[in-house]
Design a protein around this nucleic acid. Sequence first.
DNA 1: GAGTGGCG
DNA 2: CGCA
Length: 203
Amino acid sequence: MALMTNGIEYHGEALDRAAQQHLVEVIRALVAEAPLYVPVMPGTGQPMSVRMTNCGPLGWVTDKAHGYRYQETHPVTGKAWPAMPAELLALWERFSGYHKPPQACLVNFYADDARMGLHQDRDEEDLQAPVVSISLGNACLFRVGGLTRRDRTASMRLSSGDVVVLGGEGRLAFHGVDRIYPGTSTLLKNGGRINLTLRRVHR
DNA sequence: GAGTGGCG
DNA sequence: CGCA
């Protein structure tokens, strides 16, 4: 039974070690085809501390000139994103409860000193579809708030293999990653954390 | 159309 | 650094 916090679902230890290891291999192959890049904030061009890539028909990107958006191609290579792996489609089936498939999987790599400021996922046209988030590697301190930036927030630790679903009331909840806990997982040999977020973009 | 800290 |  999923735990609810601020409208979001938390599935602790949803993926066993073997499944996590397999996902890491899948991600490695994906990164070989679609290299990680450093996203920058619109307007200011300030780099984010995470590195990212995508798979699926669409990928979430941002740059100084055009801001947040989904597009069909990698911003550096210009190539189409790698296909969505079957393993990720299966996780969407298991956790989303949604009848249409995901169109993007954003892959975020957090070094041990990376963070993600409080934000909403609202660049998708289909806000009925949830966002399914999978944690791999070192644990993090995840913070979730409400529908406005000023709403009170709650913090929770996310560990490798945990799955969070932002859907329903929690679909537009502000959320972010305050810190990574170094040395809390042996899944990634070089430390850090991987977060996968599966999204449906278009209705 | 800007935006994923900053303050004490 | 802790807080929110």
